[in-house]
Design a protein around this nucleic acid. Structure first.
Lengths: 131, 131
DNA sequence: CTTGACCTTGGAGTGGACTCCAAGGTTTAT
DNA sequence: ATAAACCTTGGAGTCCACTCCAAGGTCAAG
């Protein structure tokens, strides 16, 4: 699998994949005799993991630590269990926040003026459209 | 409530709040005679909403649309119900992704070498600590 | 009445994560 | 055998969301 194919499989650009490699998130892949990078399915997996962790708002450096733990059980910067436990707490916190946001948005959707009609609704802010 | 106090109440910086105002996420607040911005508790609320939406990975522009719907029921760029429905689907998708990540991280935590001992483990990458 | 903490503006600078480009080599289809 | 579609590198540029700064005004405490 060459870089373009991997890019298509993960919905990333080849540039982004090369960038992740330089950033230390992907190991240097095997090369063809012509110097083309070649990947196997584990790379797809790894990129999916990166994408998941990114959704959490983690910086690439933190994701690198997470991947190091996944690869070796060792965190480059502190006891792996501590690092993982803290990140896990963040995941939990974020899931709760998103559920709260979900509730609020559902309420907004229900409270929408029936026909979606542009009646002014007085006294609420930002009505004179900033943009 | 002046800007510094609002900043403290939301864990943002005064600069960030002024930046949000310029970006159209916050209405121009009342001013004291000296020109100082003054806010009431609705501003705290609004900033909390912004922070929640940001955790979702929304850009400030999208958050502005969400706020316009919250304020007026009207979306500046497309039918409000459509916009909200799409964002809601994103929230749901993200909650599911985070739950998958959570499962994976829990498994990683359980699979950690018992004593968390810093044995070198040869041949794996990124072990020589980036920070 | 001065000191220090706060506020104002406009504008420049930063960090992270890409994203694009030039100049060139390779592979594949016709 | 030649064009189109891919790949390589290094480096520059872009976008977003801040973040900092200078130069100055305001206000409460001592």
């Amino acid at each position: 699998m060459r870089i373009g194919e991997l890019a298509a499989a993960t919905d990333l650009s080849p540039d982004t994949i090369r960038y992740y490699e330089k950033a230390g998130l992907l190991p240097a892949p095997a090369r063809t005799s012509a110097g083309y990078r070649t990947y196997d399915s584990r790379a797809v997996d790894r990129l999916h993991f990166i994408q998941g962790a990114q959704r959490l708002g983690l910086r690439l450096e933190d994701i690198g630590n997470l991947l190091a733990i996944r690869d070796t059980g060792i965190c480059p910067c502190e006891p792996a269990a501590d690092f993982l436990t803290r990140r896990l707490a963040e995941v939990d916190a974020q899931i709760r926040r998103l559920e709260a946001l979900r509730t609020e948005m559902t309420a907004m959707l229900e409270g929408l003026p029936a026909g979606d009609c542009p009646q002014p609704v007085p006294g609420t802010w930002l009505q004179q459209g900033g943009r």
